[in-house]
Structures are given as structure tokens and as C-alpha cells.
């Protein structure tokens, strides 16, 4: 899979993962405090934060695997810099990454419009929710409560990760720093 990637694309992916690993970790702590008060549902509406690197990496680099790999790397780095969820977080990353990646795969890695990005946010929300359901033992909770949780998470995934990721990347594009990557290439007229 990585054969056709340029080294600088992989390094960019790693840097994005590092940056967002820090952000992710910060939000874990925010969420944790909340969660102590109002239970696991506290995480749901900010859950999109934890998918954002997938969307940004895929949108900028536009290669198969970017969404998946960035999320897994971010999770791994998050673990190493001190997320006490530990190795499990990598599994979470894999699952969320697959969810986001699916959206890009379905569109043949050809389209990176807003709706595809939002779909990716939704995909990550869906797979990650399935995981929470099993590991967090949500069977124990009432179905309406579970449904509310899911609705919140999906919306958050689409807005924070999908829309937010696009806005952030477009702002970065304007600085000229993405000149050598696929996102900038798309907008350039060759002649």
C-alpha cells in the first residue's frame, strides 16, 4: 500500500497524527471530567474530535489508506504520550479509521467533497459506536439511551470531523504550506 506514497506524504501523515494525538489526549481529559458527572454520554457530542485526523489526512493526501493510517498512528502516539486507556486505544483507532476509510473507499478515492468528508465522519462514528457497544457493555443500558448516544455521536462526527476537518484544511491550504500535496494540485491549472 505504501509503495506509491512519497516519503513526504508519510511524514506529513505522521506529523498530523502527532499534533492530533495531543489534541485527542487533551479532549480525553476534558471528557473524563465530564463523564464523572454525567456518565459516558458526556463524550458523545465531542466525539467527532477523535475522528478529525482521518478526514484531514485523507482530504490533503488523497491516497487509499490515509484516513485509516492517520487515525491508527494518532491513537498509537496518544497511547505513548500518556493516554491511560493504553493499548486498547490502538484498537479504537483501527476501528474508527476503518469507518472513515470506508467512506473514501466507497467513492473510489475520487471524490473529496464536503458530503464525502461528512460521510467519513459518520462512518467513523458508526464503527466506533459498535465498538463502544461491545466493550463498554452498552447492552446493559436502555435502548433509548443508547439511541440518543448514537445520534449525538454521528452528528458530532459529521460536523466536527467532516465539516471541521474541511474548514481547517482549507485554511491551511491558503497559507501555501500544502503546495506539494494532492489537495493543492487539484486546484491548480496546469499549462
Amino acid at each position: 500500500m505504501l509503495k506509491s506514497w512519497k516519503l513526504k506524504e508519510i511524514v506529513l501523515l505522521a506529523i498530523l497524527s502527532v499534533v492530533f494525538a495531543v489534541v485527542y489526549l487533551a479532549f480525553v481529559h476534558v471528557g473524563n471530567l465530564w463523564a464523572g458527572l454525567i456518565g459516558p454520554i458526556a463524550y458523545e457530542w465531542i466525539f467527532g474530535i477523535w475522528f478529525i485526523v482521518s478526514i484531514i489526512a485523507a482530504y490533503i493526501i488523497r491516497r487509499p489508506g490515509a484516513a485509516f493510517l492517520s487515525e491508527v498512528l494518532a491513537a498509537t502516539i496518544e497511547m505513548m504520550i500518556g493516554n491511560a486507556i493504553g493499548p486498547r486505544i490502538i484498537l479504537v483507532g483501527i476501528i474508527q479509521g476503518l469507518g472513515a476509510e470506508a467512506a473514501f473507499a466507497v467513492t473510489g478515492y475520487k471524490r473529496y467533497d464536503l458530503w464525502v468528508l461528512m460521510l467519513a465522519g459518520f462512518g467513523a462514528a458508526a464503527t466506533s459506536f459498535a465498538y463502544t457497544y461491545v466493550m463498554g457493555g452498552l447492552v446493559a443500558l436502555s435502548p433509548t439511551y443508547v439511541a440518543t448516544m448514537f445520534a449525538l455521536r454521528a452528528t458530532s462526527g459529521m460536523l466536527i470531523a467532516g465539516l471541521g476537518g474541511k474548514i481547517l484544511s482549507d485554511l491551511l491550504l491558503r497559507t501555501g504550506a500544502l503546495e506539494g500535496y494532492a489537495l493543492a494540485r487539484k486546484g491548480r491549472v496546469h499549462g
Partner: peptide, 13 residues
């Protein structure tokens, strides 16, 4: 972020 991206590119080079 933009600065980090540029740095990343140069490190790759």
C-alpha cells in the same frame, strides 16, 4: 500547523 507541515516536508527531503 502550517509551519509544522513545512518542516515535515523539509525533514522528508
Amino acid at each position: 500547523l502550517a509551519g509544522s507541515i513545512r518542516q515535515a516536508e523539509r525533514i522528508a527531503f
